[in-house]
Amino acid sequence: MRLEGKVAIVTGGGAGIGRATVDLFAREGARVVIAEYDRDTGQTALDAVTAAGGSAIFVQTDVSDEAQMAAMVGAAMDTWGRIDILHNNVGGSTENDGPIHSVSNDEFWLKMKVDVFGTWLGCRLVIPHMIAQGGGAIVNMTSVNAIIGARNRNAYAAAKGAVSSLTRALAVQYGRDGIRVNAVAPGRTLSQRVMARQGTRAASDIGDDSHLLGLIEPEEVARSVLYLATGESSKVTGHILVVDSGLTVQ
C-alpha cells in the first residue's frame, strides 16, 4: 500500500497505460480521479476499481479544454481535499501523422493541443494545490520519439519533445516547493489502440528486433509511473525515465 492516503489524478485513465496506472494506484491504496474523455471506458475503469474495493471517481474530461480540466481538478478537491499525484498520461500518435512535408497542420496542432497543452493545463491547475499542501509528485508522459528519430511521427515527436522540456523546467521551478516533476518515455507499448491497429497480427509479430526484451505491456509502464509517484523516488526530479526495452541504447 505504497500510496495509502494519497489522492492521484490520472488523465486518460480509461484505457492503455492510463487504465493500467489507475488499477495499480488503486491497489496501492490511492484514491484515484479517473479523468477520461470516453464515457464508456471511464465508467468501466471506475467500476473495476470499486468492484475490487478501491476508491475512485470518474470525471469525463477533455484535457485540452481548460474549463473541463478545472472542473475535474475541482471535483478532486471537493471530494478529497487534496491532490498528491498528477499523472498527465493523455496523448499518443495517430495514423494521420507523417513526414513534415506532407502531414497536415491540423495534425500538428492536434498533438500540441492534446499532448502539450493538456499537460500544461494539468500542471497549471494542480500545482497551486500542491504548493498549498507542501508538495506533491507529477509524472508526465513523453516518448522515446522525443529522444531518437523516427519516421512518420514528426508531429508526435515535436509534441513529446515539448513535454520533456516542460518537465525539466517545472522540476527546477517548483523543487523548492516540494514538488517533484518527472516523466516516463515508453517504447512501443501494447495498448488496446496499438493492438487494434495491428488487426489479426499476434503481439509477438508487432514491431521489430529493436525492442531487445520484447514489446512493452501497459502494466510495465504503470510500474514506472508508480515509482516516480512514491517516496521511493524522493530525490528524483527533472528525470525522463526511459522504459523502452533497450530501443535507445542500440
Rank of each mutant, 00 (worst) to 15 (best):
Y174I: 02
L241T: 01
G238I: 06
M1Q: 13
G199M: 00
L213Q: 12
L3G: 07
E220L: 02
H211M: 12
Y37T: 11
A8Y: 03
R153T: 12
G74R: 00
L247I: 15
L3C: 11
V114Y: 01
A30V: 04
S55K: 11
A51I: 12
A196P: 01
H101D: 15
V116Q: 07
G91H: 01
R188G: 13
M77G: 02
T11L: 02
G214I: 02
V243F: 00
A169E: 11
V10N: 01
S104T: 13
L46D: 05
M141V: 15
L166S: 09
I127K: 04
Q192L: 10
D23I: 05
S224M: 06
G214A: 01
L170E: 12
D115T: 15
K6A: 09
V103Q: 00
V172C: 14
D40A: 15
A185D: 07
D23V: 10
R151P: 09
T41I: 14
K6F: 05
V221Q: 03
A26C: 00
V242E: 03
M72F: 03
R153F: 09
G53P: 12
D244A: 08
T237K: 02
A132N: 11
S93P: 13
V163K: 05
I9V: 14
G74M: 03
C123M: 11
A26E: 08
I138M: 03
Q173R: 14
V139C: 04
R151H: 12
T248P: 01
V126P: 00
L170Y: 10
C123K: 02
P128H: 10
R2E: 13
A15R: 14
G199T: 00
D209W: 13
L110H: 15
M69A: 00
V163E: 06
D78F: 02
A157H: 05
G53I: 14
L121Q: 05
G29Y: 04
Q60P: 12
F117M: 13
D62Q: 01
S64T: 13
E66I: 06
D84R: 06
T79Q: 15
L46Y: 00
A35G: 07
D177K: 15
